[in-house]
């Protein structure tokens, strides 16, 4: 049921490393099934990427029900979880991504100001 997660991650990392200087974003969105919350998260992430990262992002959406081994490998606890693998530092954003301000701060697209 599960694909080889490590190779896939490796490839993704390699590809990401190649594009590192161009500030390419490697994002993984883990959702648990197609629930309204999952759909909302997918919608929100996509909209944000198109708005702020047009042309320089690699987003993959993973259903942890389909690939539970990935959930273990990626240390997924909550759903939905968006992992920003690149650029570093690694960040985990959990929730429906409804709070745009927090998502942008989490993706280092906006400075944290409080």
């Amino acid at each position: 049921m599960a694909k080889k997660p490590d190779r896939k991650t490796e490839q993704a990392l390699k590809a990401a490393a190649k594009n590192a200087d161009t500030r390419n974003y490697v994002l993984r969105l883990y959702v648990a099934g197609i629930t309204p919350r999952s759909q909302e998260a997918i919608r929100n992430v996509k909209a944000m990427c198109d708005e702020h990262l047009a042309g320089r992002y690699d987003l993959q959406i993973v259903d942890i029900y389909q690939q539970p081994v990935l959930a273990k490998g990626e240390q997924i606890i909550a759903a939905p979880t968006l992992i920003k693998k690149l650029p570093l530092p690694l960040r985990r954003l959990i929730g429906s991504m409804a709070d745009e301000e927090k998502v942008l701060v989490g993706l280092d697209l906006r400075a944290r100001n409080e």
Binding site: A32, P68, A79, P89, S96, V103, V105
Partner: peptide, 20 residues
């Protein structure tokens, strides 16, 4: 420090891992 909350969520990840 890695985690940022951006809205409603559940711990389905934990459930999936346990179940697997």
């Amino acid at each position: 420090s890695e985690i940022e909350e951006t809205g409603e969520y559940d711990l389905e990840g934990l459930f999936v891992r346990l179940n697997a």
